[in-house]
Amino acid sequence: MAAGGDHGSPDSYRSPLASRYASPEMCFVFSDRYKFRTWRQLWLWLAEAEQTLGLPITDEQIQEMKSNLENIDFKMAAEEEKRLRHDVMAHVHTFGHCCPKAAGIIHLGATSCYVGDNTDLIILRNALDLLLPKLARVISRLADFAKERASLPTLGFTHFQPAQLTTVGKRCCLWIQDLCMDLQNLKRVRDDLRFRGVKGTTGTQASFLQLFEGDDHKVEQLDKMVTEKAGFKRAFIITGQTYTRKVDIEVLSVLASLGASVHKICTDIRLLANLKEMEEPFEKQQIGSSAMPYKRNPMRSERCCSLARHLMTLVMDPLQTASVQWFERTLDDSANRRICLAEAFLTADTILNTLQNISEGLVVYPKVIERRIRQELPFMATENIIMAMVKAGGSRQDCHEKIRVLSQQAASVVKQEGGDNDLIERIQVDAYFSPIHSQLDHLLDPSSFTGRASQQVQRFLEEEVYPLLKPYESVMKVKAELCL
């Protein structure tokens, strides 16, 4: 049975990233139509530049190519590739079939990587351009969430054990800070992308030097003109047959890092959902379990974690691919890159769409948070109580021993009897502590235990987050809708 299948058929496997999760716009960027249309555009740009620099290419040939950029006979191309065992030459023939007058000058002087690699770089750039505003929107939604809850005390956790208090907004800023680093890295790697350009079979530009009869300047002009037509500021000066596969490492490393950030955020949300302090959106008709109707599973956060793990592992592909590119190139890269580049971007696209949807509907339960604080705060307040007693004339050592005994009794009630923490009640009825009984409410005010959390939130948002989001103001209103 021949390899390949009808990918629109229910009898043929289709990647869930495309069929179930990723956005239509990201799927289109990695589609065959987008790819092969870009090949034709690159052939047109090459012909236009070659004509401008004096090669015998007519206006009629150029116009014929322009008129057929979208006229792609995919069936013919597939048949040609089956016959020739070469995808680029299959599309040269297919393009030439609908451009008979231009057929002889299509791909003039070029090698397969002229269309293959340059198209990949265009796709990487455009895919990054799709991700950047999506990530900015996630940051914006979380920034709104953090600002609104900047002063809401909550129990902090280290080692997932109760620690000092923080605020809900401050905790959210930990998430935002990681995503801001990801946004900066995505922008950097996007701006650092260079075009492969017009380089020939081993990167020496020998074929173009021959076409222009040894004119170095025209060869350099050709490279520059096509690079500018493709919208790049610069091209690699040095290439082998391909652009260095280190570029793929750079791009997928940034995406993998984004995956790590999203995994951490969504894990926190899942843990908070278990504590009943916070939940992701839950639709009115949504079913959490087929057997347990009360369940409210954090399905979206779980999906993000599941896909983020996949995204983090994909960076190993370009690392290994770059390491086995012998001399000017081997074909070890080809099949692998067809999979890992598309999957990385479709996965990143999915987790950003999902995280935006989550961040637009996060639900906080202040009463649950308050109750958990009441359970733990008495123990945390013991040092403040000791200091207040010393100020009232008591002995630190005597007070410490009193607190120690009462704390152990209260802990026994919590752990052995399943009761509430009654340390404060014990202190309130103990005559030894009568000098500070009137101060206990103040000493137990949760806001006095959150330090500068709310001020940190305000400063972080104003100095770091809002300036970073400013270039994306025009796209901030787009909502994230999930079908599944």
Rank of each mutant, 00 (worst) to 15 (best):
residue 2 A to P: 11
residue 4 G to L: 15
residue 4 G to N: 15
residue 6 D to M: 15
residue 16 P to K: 12
residue 24 P to K: 14
residue 25 E to W: 05
residue 26 M to Y: 00
residue 31 S to Q: 09
residue 33 R to A: 12
residue 34 Y to S: 13
residue 36 F to W: 15
residue 38 T to V: 14
residue 43 W to H: 15
residue 44 L to D: 04
residue 46 L to I: 07
residue 47 A to G: 09
residue 50 E to A: 08
residue 54 G to A: 10
residue 56 P to I: 07
residue 59 D to E: 09
residue 61 Q to S: 09
residue 61 Q to D: 11
residue 63 Q to V: 10
residue 63 Q to F: 14
residue 64 E to Y: 08
residue 66 K to G: 10
residue 67 S to L: 14
residue 67 S to H: 11
residue 69 L to I: 15
residue 70 E to K: 13
residue 70 E to D: 15
residue 71 N to A: 09
residue 72 I to R: 04
residue 74 F to Q: 12
residue 76 M to P: 06
residue 77 A to E: 08
residue 79 E to H: 12
residue 80 E to W: 07
residue 84 L to C: 06
residue 84 L to H: 07
residue 85 R to I: 10
residue 92 V to C: 13
residue 96 G to Q: 03
residue 96 G to S: 10
residue 96 G to R: 00
residue 97 H to P: 03
residue 97 H to L: 15
residue 98 C to V: 12
residue 98 C to N: 13
residue 100 P to V: 11
residue 100 P to D: 11
residue 100 P to I: 10
residue 101 K to C: 11
residue 104 G to I: 08
residue 109 G to S: 04
residue 110 A to W: 01
residue 110 A to Q: 01
residue 116 G to M: 06
residue 127 A to Y: 00
residue 127 A to V: 06
residue 135 L to N: 06
residue 136 A to V: 15
residue 140 S to D: 11
residue 140 S to A: 14
residue 141 R to F: 13
residue 142 L to Q: 04
residue 143 A to R: 05
residue 146 A to W: 01
residue 148 E to Y: 07
residue 150 A to M: 09
residue 150 A to C: 13
residue 151 S to P: 10
residue 154 T to N: 05
residue 154 T to K: 02
residue 156 G to Y: 00
residue 158 T to Y: 00
residue 158 T to N: 00
residue 161 Q to L: 02
residue 168 V to H: 06
residue 170 K to R: 14
residue 171 R to A: 01
residue 176 I to P: 01
residue 177 Q to D: 05
residue 184 Q to Y: 10
residue 184 Q to W: 10
residue 184 Q to R: 11
residue 184 Q to M: 13
residue 186 L to I: 13
residue 191 D to V: 10
residue 195 F to D: 01
residue 198 V to H: 04
residue 198 V to W: 01
residue 199 K to A: 15
residue 200 G to E: 01
residue 202 T to Q: 10
residue 202 T to K: 03
residue 204 T to E: 02
residue 204 T to F: 00
residue 204 T to V: 10
residue 205 Q to V: 07
residue 210 Q to D: 12
residue 210 Q to T: 15
residue 217 H to Q: 08
residue 220 E to Y: 09
residue 223 D to P: 01
residue 226 V to R: 01
residue 228 E to G: 09
residue 228 E to C: 11
residue 229 K to V: 05
residue 232 F to N: 02
residue 233 K to A: 12
residue 233 K to D: 09
residue 236 F to R: 06
residue 242 T to V: 10
residue 245 R to H: 00
residue 246 K to L: 03
residue 247 V to G: 11
residue 247 V to F: 06
residue 247 V to D: 07
residue 249 I to W: 04
residue 250 E to D: 13
residue 251 V to E: 03
residue 251 V to R: 06
residue 253 S to N: 13
residue 257 S to R: 06
residue 261 S to C: 05
residue 267 T to P: 02
residue 269 I to V: 12
residue 274 N to T: 12
residue 274 N to Q: 09
residue 277 E to L: 03
residue 280 E to R: 00
residue 282 F to V: 07
residue 284 K to I: 09
residue 285 Q to V: 15
residue 288 G to H: 05
residue 293 P to T: 01
residue 299 M to E: 01
residue 301 S to R: 00
residue 309 R to H: 14
residue 309 R to N: 08
residue 309 R to V: 12
residue 311 L to M: 14
residue 312 M to N: 02
residue 313 T to C: 11
residue 314 L to S: 12
residue 315 V to L: 13
residue 315 V to S: 11
residue 316 M to F: 09
residue 316 M to N: 11
residue 320 Q to M: 12
residue 321 T to Q: 11
residue 324 V to E: 07
residue 324 V to D: 10
residue 327 F to K: 03
residue 332 D to R: 02
residue 334 S to Y: 03
residue 335 A to W: 02
residue 337 R to W: 02
residue 338 R to M: 03
residue 345 F to R: 03
residue 348 A to H: 04
residue 348 A to L: 09
residue 350 T to K: 06
residue 352 L to Y: 08
residue 352 L to H: 06
residue 352 L to A: 11
residue 352 L to S: 08
residue 358 I to P: 02
residue 360 E to Y: 06
residue 361 G to E: 15
residue 363 V to I: 14
residue 367 K to F: 03
residue 368 V to P: 03
residue 369 I to K: 02
residue 369 I to D: 04
residue 372 R to T: 06
residue 373 I to C: 07
residue 373 I to T: 07
residue 375 Q to Y: 06
residue 378 P to R: 02
residue 384 N to Y: 07
residue 384 N to K: 06
residue 384 N to T: 10
residue 385 I to T: 06
residue 386 I to G: 05
residue 387 M to D: 02
residue 387 M to C: 11
residue 389 M to D: 10
residue 393 G to Q: 08
residue 394 G to R: 13
residue 395 S to F: 07
residue 395 S to R: 07
residue 400 H to M: 05
residue 404 R to S: 10
residue 405 V to A: 15
residue 406 L to N: 07
residue 407 S to D: 00
residue 408 Q to N: 15
residue 408 Q to A: 15
residue 410 A to Y: 04
residue 410 A to D: 05
residue 410 A to F: 04
residue 414 V to A: 04
residue 414 V to T: 05
residue 417 E to D: 10
residue 421 N to K: 05
residue 424 I to Y: 15
residue 425 E to K: 11
residue 426 R to Q: 09
residue 431 A to W: 09
residue 432 Y to C: 09
residue 434 S to K: 13
residue 439 Q to N: 12
residue 440 L to T: 03
residue 443 L to M: 10
residue 449 F to A: 04
residue 450 T to L: 06
residue 450 T to G: 04
residue 452 R to D: 01
residue 452 R to L: 10
residue 455 Q to E: 14
residue 459 R to L: 12
residue 461 L to S: 04
residue 461 L to C: 11
residue 462 E to Y: 13
residue 466 Y to I: 14
residue 471 P to A: 15
residue 472 Y to R: 08
residue 473 E to V: 13
residue 482 L to A: 14
residue 483 C to R: 15
residue 484 L to P: 07
